[in-house]
Design a protein around this nucleic acid. Structure first.
Lengths: 337, 337
DNA sequence: ACTTGGCACTCATACACTGGGAGTGCCAGA
DNA sequence: TCTGGCACTCCCAGTGTATGAGTGCCAAGT
């Protein structure tokens, strides 16, 4: 259906259009790339490519630009992921190497990715669900108020306030804390509800009410915080892109956690890169953007996802390379700390 | 120098320009506002106002628009802060009322403020410096690695990893933790360095090295984290504003913590509103924006600052009202939790 | 059967020109 | 000190035109 030359022409169109941001015509194409054929021949092939829906003209007598379908073919068949330069690798290492806690890792990652790709970077915090309990702390902060602090093995720290019906002594707190840690230390978060259910039975009579309060807040935390935290950076990189739709729509979408979640897609095999192009994005307002995302996590286990959002007219090989490299590096950092 | 009528005219110009976004001419002004004089008289006054630098014409034979100096006079002398509608008050209450931890309070606040003012909202996390220690936790996470968790009375939680040169037993950790809490409980953070300095002397010989490591990380935390965390929201509201400079500059500035810090200004009297107009902002790239900010915190004590950034052509009375109201409300929430 | 050069055609873009209108400054008179 | 009148400036929108890039198609060449 499409012979090699037509594919080469499509590849050339995508590459030229991405770098110049102008519809590319037959003459310029024949000149810039050593196709070995005349502009007229290129025109004929372009007519076929247009008929098949891979490219389109913004208006009669303009050059051609790729359609979403064209980009898709380009990404799937015509391009290879571009590895980073060694300078870029060094930059990643030095920039991420200095991070000292999870917040810092995530923040640095998102900024780094935005800078590398010159696009909007999106990073999801490591999921609670797949991690396990490293420690639970229970701190009295007032006569009838406790602070529950949950530390996971990914370094994430969750905190919630617990109101109790009666005054609680420090001794009671200490006792509950000890039991709690005994029950939960090292447990996967998914197992926590089962493991903790008989907490009230294990404490002395007068602490039972408190234990129930602690229990319910702990369960709540696990459920509510299941909605993951996501950050983004590099919005400034959108400013000089001309979207067919308003920039406003895109910025609005970025500030919605839920939309960002859907944007990054399902947590899948962390080794595979997901590319969603233009209208492949279901989200209203992001029809003219593309997303490149992947999972990341320690030990080849996907804890969360990160990615990049930009115009469909995007340097896919370069972006894919950057996303993959950063994801791998963050995985190493998480595994090592 | 400027009689009452000229001031009224300036006020009218600011108000009309803010609402229409178009240079306002003498005729329209005389009609819309009951000034009791003819357009010709208005023209004469406008000429004086222009001479004094309060207004300017974008081009000959256009209406006038306020200068930064004009807005300044308007804010200082010609306007009164507009209190919120009761519907808006209710919205604040219900929206902020549901918050369950500090992160949540800050996030909700920044989103709320952005929505109320239809501009970019900026909120600084409550400062470490003015708060005090509620609890310090020391958790072993590996043979030679401890996690230091610092909980302040504002609900902020800081965490840092401590590497030790030798293996540490759980007993040692428990002992150090107890001593640490004994020394620091309730201390203002500013006092911590002094209070903690003799920690190594108080532990048994073999724990001394560990205690020193803990000490140094703790001090580091206090110093390094002194650079405060700041978040913003509502960038989408910038999209339909036409800045004289590029939107990109503004977006870039917003992603720089340091710039945001300077933007909000010095932590001062929480009751007073700071308004910085146009070129009064020293920051490159924010010359055509204005900032309305104020301190907030529990018990009339400014813990941090929050504010709004928008075009100089801004509804100052309304924005100031919203900022003040939100700051007060957040203060109450912090005091009560 | 494919490739090529030629040619007519289409349109977006840039540019110059125009008239209308909003708004101004100034002046003479009340 | 205010007001109406008037000449003037200059933005803006609309129109017309030339230009040039790019196309589609066709007939001839390989």
């Amino acid at each position: 259906m499409l012979d090699d030359r037509k594919l080469s022409i499509l590849r050339a169109i995508v590459e030229d259009y991405v770098s110049t941001n102008e519809p590319v015509g037959s003459k310029a194409l024949a000149e810039r790339h050593a196709l070995g054929v005349s502009p007229a021949t290129v025109r004929n092939d372009m007519a076929v490519l247009e008929e098949q829906g891979y490219i389109t003209q913004p208006h009669t007598s303009a050059g051609r630009i790729p359609t979403d379908k064209g980009y898709r073919l380009f990404v799937d068949k015509l391009s290879t992921i571009k590895p980073l330069s060694s300078a870029e690798r060094r930059a990643i290492e030095t920039f991420l190497g200095g991070a000292y806690d999870l917040d810092d890792v995530v923040n640095r990652t998102v900024r780094l990715l935005a800078q590398l790709t010159r696009q909007v970077a999106v990073v999801q915090y490591p999921s609670l669900t797949r991690s396990s309990v490293r420690h639970i702390e229970l701190v009295p902060v007032a006569a009838r108020r406790l602070l529950l602090v949950l530390i996971t093995n990914t370094g994430r720290v969750e905190q919630r306030v617990i109101e109790t019906a009666t005054d609680v002594t420090d001794d009671s707190v200490a006792q509950i804390r000890t039991i709690l840690n005994g029950l939960l230390d090292g447990q996967a978060l998914a197992e926590v509800p089962l493991a903790v259910v008989d907490l009230p039975d294990r404490v002395v009579e007068e602490d039972r009410a408190v234990a129930v309060a602690v229990l319910s807040v702990l369960l709540e935390t696990l459920v509510e915080r299941h909605e993951e935290k996501i950050v983004f950076a590099g919005a400034a990189n959108l400013a000089h892109v001309d979207f067919s739709q308003s920039l406003r729509d895109v910025l609005e979408a970025l500030e919605e956690q839920v939309v960002l979640m859907r944007l990054l897609g399902e947590t899948g095999d962390p080794a595979s890169l997901m590319v969603r192009i233009g209208t492949e994005n279901q989200m209203e307002g992001l029809r003219s953007t593309s997303v490149v995302a992947t999972g990341y996590g320690a030990d080849g286990l996907a804890l969360a996802r990160l990615g990049v959002l930009g115009p469909t007219r995007m340097d896919y090989p370069g972006t894919m390379g950057a996303v993959r490299a950063v994801a791998r590096y963050v995985g190493q950092i998480l595994a090592g700390s």
